[in-house]
C-alpha cells in the first residue's frame, strides 16, 4: 500500500488500537479535527471519544494523565501538536516517567509522539529538534523514523515497549515521503540502526530528515566514484553502538550529520563512542555537519543558512575522502 509518512503513522495507531484495547490516544485537537497534521484523522469515529481523547491545552496534564493511565496497565499514546511544546511537559517526562521504573519498579509504557524538525519555515517554536533533552535522560527511549515503512514499524514497536518512548516524527517528511508500506504485522526493532545505503568509502551516520539529504548526496557522489554508506540510526536512545561500529569498520571514515544544533548534539556522543571503540579502525578525523548553534530562524534564507545543506555535505564528504 502506497502511504505517506504521516499516513503510515496513522495506520500504525489504527492497527495497534484494533489489536490491543489497552492502547488509547490523548492530545490536543486529535479528535474531531484529527490532529494538526491529521495523524489521527477519523480515529475518533472508529474508537470513540474515550479512546481518542481531546485534552485541555496543557502539556503537563497530558503527560501526567498518560503516566497515570499507564500505571493501570493501559498503553497511552499522547500527541504533541508540535514537539517544541514538549518543553512544557519536561518535568513530567524527566522526573516522573523516566525515573519511575528505576525508583520503584513501576513501568510507564507510554508513547509521546509528534512532529519535530525544521525546513518548513515554522520559526523558532515550530521547528525544533528536542531529542537531546531526552537522550540525556536515563530511562527514556528516543526514536525518530526517516521512512514511511519505519514510521509504521517503529511506532508499533514503541507502543508495545514497556518504557516511555519519545517518538519524533519529522514534519518535513510527513507528506514528502511516499512509499510502499506493508500492511499488518510489520515491526521495526527499537535500538537498531538501518543501513539505508551500503557503501565502501565513507560512512554518514544520521537520522530523521537528514537521511534523504544524505542519500541524495550519496547518489550524486556515486557518479564521481565515491561510494557513501548511509546509516540511519532510527533510535537515538539507546544508541545502536554495534551498528555504528560495524559501519565505521567497513569504511574507516565517518561523518555525522544531524539537523539538531551542534553543541551537545548527538554527534559529540557518537564521536566519543567511535574513538573509544574504533580508534584503530579509522583512517581520518570524525567530522560533523549540524545546524548552527542558534534558535531556528523563521525567514527562508535564514533557515536555509541555519540547516545543513546538500552542498555543504558534499564538500565535507570530499574533504574527508581525501584522507
Amino acid at each position: 500500500m502506497q502511504l505517506t509518512y504521516v499516513e503510515a503513522i496513522r495506520l500504525a495507531l489504527e492497527e495497534e488500537m484494533r489489536r490491543d484495547p489497552a492502547v488509547f490516544l490523548l492530545g490536543e485537537d486529535i479528535g474531531v479535527y484529527g490532529g494538526a497534521f491529521k495523524a489521527t484523522a477519523g480515529l475518533i469515529d472508529e474508537f470513540g471519544p474515550v479512546r481518542v481523547m481531546d485534552t485541555p491545552l496543557a502539556e503537563s496534564a497530558l503527560v501526567g494523565a498518560a503516566i497515570g493511565a499507564a500505571y493501570t496497565g493501559m498503553r497511552p499514546v499522547a500527541e504533541f501538536q508540535f514537539m517544541d511544546f514538549i518543553a512544557c511537559a519536561y518535568n513530567q517526562i524527566v522526573n516522573f516517567a523516566a525515573k519511575s521504573h528505576y525508583r520503584w519498579q513501576a513501568p510507564v509504557p507510554i508513547v509521546l509522539r509528534g512532529p519535530a524538525g525544521g525546513g518548513v519555515h515554522g520559526g523558532p517554536f515550530h521547528s525544533q529538534n528536542p531529542e537531546m533533552h531526552f537522550v540525556h535522560t536515563p530511562g527514556l527511549k528516543v526514536v525518530e523514523p526517516a521512512t514511511a515503512v519505519d514510521a509504521k514499524g517503529l511506532l508499533k514497536s514503541a507502543i508495545r515497549d514497556n518504557n516511555p518512548v519519545i517518538f519524533l516524527e519529522h514534519k518535513f517528511l510527513y507528506r514528502r515521503v511516499k512509499e510502499e508500506v506493508p500492511e499488518g504485522e510489520h515491526l521495526a526493532p527499537l535500538g537498531k540502526a538501518r543501513v539505508a545505503r551500503p557503501g565502501r568509502d565513507l560512512s554518514v551516520i544520521t537520522y530523521g530528515a537528514m537521511v534523504p539529504l544524505a542519500l541524495e548526496v550519496a547518489d550524486r557522489l556515486a557518479g564521481e566514484g565515491l561510494e557513501l554508506e548511509v546509516l540511519d540510526l532510527r533510535t537515538l536512545l539507546p544508541l545502536d553502538v554495534e551498528g555504528m561500529l560495524a559501519s565505521a569498520r567497513r569504511t574507516s571514515k565517518v561523518l555525522i550529520l544531524h539537523e539538531d544544533t551542534r553543541t551537545g548534539g548527538l554527534a559529540g556522543e557518537i564521536t566519543a563512542l567511535l574513538q573509544e571503540h574504533a580508534y584503530e579502525d579509522l583512517d581520518g578525523p570524525i567530522l560533523r555537519l549540524t545546524a548552527a548553534d542558534t534558535p531556528v530562524p523563521f525567514s527562508p534564507p535564514l533557515e536555509e543558512a541555519f540547516l545543513p545543506s546538500a552542498a555543504r555535505l558534499a564538500e565535507m564528504v570530499k574533504q574527508l575522502a581525501r584522507y
Binding site: F24, V50, R51, M53, S60, A61, L62, V63, G64, A65, A66, I67, G68, A69, A70, Y71, T72, G73, M74, P76, N91, Q92, N95, F96, K99
Partner: peptide, 21 residues
C-alpha cells in the same frame, strides 16, 4: 516525586485508565 503538583494529573490519569477499563 519531589516536584509538587505533578501527582495531580498523574492521579487523574489513574482514574482515566480505570475508566477505560
Amino acid at each position: 516525586i519531589s516536584m509538587l503538583g505533578d501527582l495531580i494529573p498523574v492521579m487523574a490519569g489513574v482514574c482515566l485508565g480505570e475508566r477505560l477499563q
